[in-house]
Design a protein around this nucleic acid. Structure first.
Lengths: 225, 225
DNA sequence: CCGGATCCGAATCGATACTG
DNA sequence: CAGTATCGATTCGGATCCGG
């Protein structure tokens, strides 16, 4: 019972006792994008065993990080409480750090809508956004579609299902990319190279808006020397 | 062997694959304070089984986060590589988040020098420090002694052993505290109350320097409503 | 289909003992 | 001091099953 207790009176210890179990922070990662149903989570974390997902959700609820909310005619969703939402700093810090160790995708690695949404958040440069006109990016990566709206220092990302067509209010561009998107964000691949190699392909809108993309989303991709 | 793989191409996932195992981030936490010998780590994490410590150190080395360095006549120390040191953001974010969930110490909970050193770092207000004269705080908590030097926006914390007496260059104060130190930092206990209740006891130096302590070290102690 | 619960073998962890 | 070795206790993963 005291098995998962580390026996120290320390904030880091307490945090790890609450969200340090396997899969826990990935459940939180997906819930940070928005409320999700059980099957959404199961789907976004394709390798999680259902009993583990069930256990984690119960533990996160018991810890007061997650709430189970019935939605009138849509079933049942899990959502973060305010305290759970405060884990955003932790998840973003982990994402930024892990970004540098990503390397090439290993065989079998997937990219999910929620993980990509959080990745865009980790790479988002709010200060740059404050200086750049509002822009809507619709991006396709494998079978994932995401719409990211950057405006006035704020970023909003929604998954493909809820993604309505960009209204005419903002500049908009739609493109498809491969895993090399990581190198574009890391700055080790230029926009030109990406387009010529076929790593990036504009489907709709003004291709020059992609320069805004690289200005808005960048993340150090290498370990400091 | 793919057991600890989450199967996603995502920074958060990669981070958890590298440091998500039980005890791993606590080893990192202690190494963030400074290089440590095997027995230092074993001692600072009193409940870690020795084989797990051994495993974690090997894994962290294999991941390039930790280096094993022979020291001329002191034996052998483990230290973080530059990439390992970049985990500071993650550990601080976890510490800040977990601070709010600490509550009262549970029976058997310990406070170690390294965990307290990192806790002070999470609570340190660099901007406040830039406005406050350099000050040296020597603090005793249980059997832990720590010396914290705050000067010009920078904080330096060393454990009791290496803690030389404060030189006359800076203002200095020495005090003993109990676990209520947490409430002082959270702002739910005033300096006066702490001193009158005996939660805080000045041993040497000017007691008025404690006001600097509360200005330099504070952390939101409650969950947002 | 959605939202799980149950069962079981495999992997990991924890406690203690032991060694160079 | 710096770890291995061993072994029982937990936890995890994979599959299946069940009630709305």
């Amino acid at each position: 019972m005291a098995a998962r207790n580390y026996g120290q009176y320390c904030g880091v210890v307490r945090a790890l006792e609450l969200v340090g179990e396997r899969w826990a922070l990935l459940v939180v990662r997906d819930l940070l994008v928005g409320p999700r149903r059980y099957s959404d989570l199961k789907n976004g974390l394709s390798r999680i065993p259902t009993n583990i997902l069930s256990d984690r959700l119960k533990e996160l609820q018991a810890a007061g990080l997650v709430r189970r909310v019935p939605v009138p005619r849509c079933g049942l969703v899990y959502e973060l409480t305010p305290y759970g939402r405060e884990l955003e700093d932790v998840v973003l810090a982990l994402g930024r750090w892990g970004f540098k160790a990503m390397g090439e995708p290993r065989e079998g690695d997937e990219v999910t809508a929620d993980s990509l949404a959080m990745a865009l958040r980790t790479a988002f440069d709010a200060e740059a956004s404050a200086r750049i006109p509002a822009t809507v990016f619709t991006l396709h990566l494998g079978d994932v579609t995401l719409v990211a709206r950057a405006a006035e220092g704020r970023l909003d990302v929604v998954g493909g299902a809820e993604a309505q067509a960009a209204s005419g209010e903002s500049d908009a561009v739609e493109f498809a990319a491969g895993p090399q998107l990581r190198e574009l964000i890391a700055g080790t691949l230029s926009l030109d190279e990406a387009q010529h190699s076929g790593a990036l392909h504009v489907l709709d809108g003004d291709a020059r808006l992609l320069e805004r993309f690289t200005s808005l989303f960048h993340l150090d991709g290498a370990v400091a020397a």
